[in-house]
Design a protein around this nucleic acid. Structure first.
Lengths: 221, 221
DNA sequence: CGCTTGCAGATTTTCGAATATCTTGCCATT
DNA sequence: AATGGCAAGATATTCGAAAATCTGCAAGCG
């Protein structure tokens, strides 16, 4: 049996990623308690965990807030992801076994299928595509065998996901995006370490470049 | 003004690092509340944060525990540190300015002085040396300009610090240890990226090797 | 007119008690 | 002797109210 705080944490994390609580805004305890059907204690515990995860901010005696979305912040996420995921990928390619390869191929397949039937105006399809995309990134480094690296990556992915709201405002060529991943997995399976790591680094850096080109940051923070 | 939960978190983190609460043991709420002079709410909030930080574990309806010290866990910390700190160092060496260099030299000086007057049986001196050592590692990557990388490193350093208890059971050649750091900083200041990054990687890996050689893991977990 | 001061309402933070869950040991049953 | 169930105590979790803190505004003062 899970505790109430666990449930609230889960629901709250999902809502934060989906922009239900506007970035930059306050998170009033009473409002949250009502929304998630719990008392103040479980809500506060959930927020405390999310605070340590970096998904909400906290100022003493002034309560919790949703961090604003800024260019600098996204750049930082991208840099951290680059560091973590390239190191993890390198290690996964050195020690990953057949089971890992199988998982990777499976994740790629799921991603390609959801990518093919993607329709950004259909929330359900979008959700499935996002899950598949993150799943592929998780699978890529799953072979590294490092619980900490996986946890850190997981958290960076969640933080990155908050920025997808912005990304969908501009026309993305999903074909190109899909090709990046297909090529990357191909290099990984060929155990071509330097090429794969390089592609991973480029891929992670691209999101920021795209947003910069479309001048998103004036309107959004 | 800070909140009670903040104070408890701070005190608890220090105690966990210093082994006041035995690894593998339970952390009973009432006992903690008394020890830190607070009610259950602030204690629970502090524990919730530390849980998300990875310093304590939590099982639903069974409370919090101090994670055991195991070889696998230390190996994981070392790997994660290697990934984070080498990437951060590389970037710091590319973009670090004179202010960073000055900070680095200062941190090295403090470390050398405390190292020289080190006496592992003197808690105060030991504490100072530990602080200086961690400070030097923090300074090394401070130039990277990435809040997230710095936070992740900070947390890994804290988790690593729990293992120092074990490290002090064996005779360490602090002269050699000091030399490693001096050489590393020298390479960093010379902006010799590949050499410096390689030294950093080696340095982080060594702790585990040393503990393995002395067969610590049978007695300790 | 501008600045401080203090009050009222809103909100966060903390407490103490109530509730839910787990653990242990005993007893009945097989 | 082993197993299963149950009750009692210990403990974690949650609630509802009290206490502390912040915010905005208006009165008082220079």
């Amino acid at each position: 049996m899970t505790t109430l705080a666990d449930n609230v944490e889960l629901a709250l994390r999902a809502d934060l990623v989906n922009g239900v609580h506007p970035p930059g805004g306050r998170l009033r305890m009473e409002m949250l308690a009502e929304r998630y059907g719990a008392g103040l204690s479980p809500v506060r515990e959930a927020l405390s965990r999310l605070y340590a995860e970096g998904l909400v901010s906290l100022e003493s005696n002034k309560g919790f807030r949703v961090p604003a979305l800024t260019r600098d912040d996204l750049a930082d996420i991208a840099f951290a992801r680059g560091a973590i995921e390239t190191a993890a990928l390198r290690r996964a390619m050195e020690r990953g076994d057949l089971a890992w390869e199988a998982m990777l191929v499976s994740a790629l397949h799921t991603y390609r299928q959801t990518s093919r039937s993607l329709d950004t105006s259909n929330p359900e399809r979008l959700q499935a595509w996002q899950a598949a995309h993150d799943g592929l990134h998780r699978a890529l480094i799953a072979g590294s065998g490092s619980p900490r690296i996986e946890q850190i990556q997981e958290r960076l992915l969640v933080q990155h996901a908050r920025y997808r709201q912005l990304l969908y405002r501009i026309p993305i060529d999903f074909k190109v995006h899909e090709r990046e991943h297909v090529d990357l997995v191909e290099a990984v399976l060929a155990r071509d370490v330097e090429v794969a790591v390089g592609m991973m680094a480029d891929h992670i850096a691209i999101t920021l470049d795209v947003l910069d080109q479309w001048g998103i940051w004036n309107e959004a923070g």
